[in-house]
Structures are given as C-alpha cells and as structure tokens.
Amino acid sequence: MTHLSLTELATGIAAVVQGIALDFAARERLAALGVKPGRTVTVVRRMGARGPLQLRAGQTDVVLRAEDAARIQVSTA
C-alpha cells in the first residue's frame, strides 16, 4: 500500500481516501459530493500540473484546485 497526495496520484488509478487536511467547509462539501475517508476515487484528468483536477467518486465527478488536492491523502493498493 502506497500513501501519497492526490496531486501525486496518476490519472486513471483508483485510490482510497485516507485523510483530508482542509477546513470544515471544504471537508463538508467534499463529503456531500462523496469524497471522504474510506471512499475510492480516481483522477479523471488535470488541467496542467497546477490547474484544477477532475475527480471521480462513485457516480459523481467533482472539480477541485490543485492546492486543495495536495492536502488530500490517498493510498493505492
């Protein structure tokens, strides 16, 4: 099992969310969109290295900024 941040996760690779070091507002919003510890997510695409990324969690896709993604820890099998 490898631990890494979402910014380091290659596109198309499934990973499990381990922790989200963001403020309450962002954590609450992410959780409501299905991104929370224990959930499997994949990065669908990135808009360049520093641009936003499209993340898929179950049936839902979300877009978030790279600086926020850097604070989301995931693990791959």
């Binding site: 963001l22 403020d23 507002a25 919003r29 992410l30 499209q54 896709d61 979300v62 877009v63 978030l64």
Partner: peptide, 9 residues
C-alpha cells in the same frame, strides 16, 4: 470568498 472551490461536474 470563503466558499470552497469544489464544484460538481
């Protein structure tokens, strides 16, 4: 803005 930039696609 205090709104988190997390948008649903």
């Amino acid at each position: 803005s205090a709104e988190p930039f997390v948008l649903e696609f």
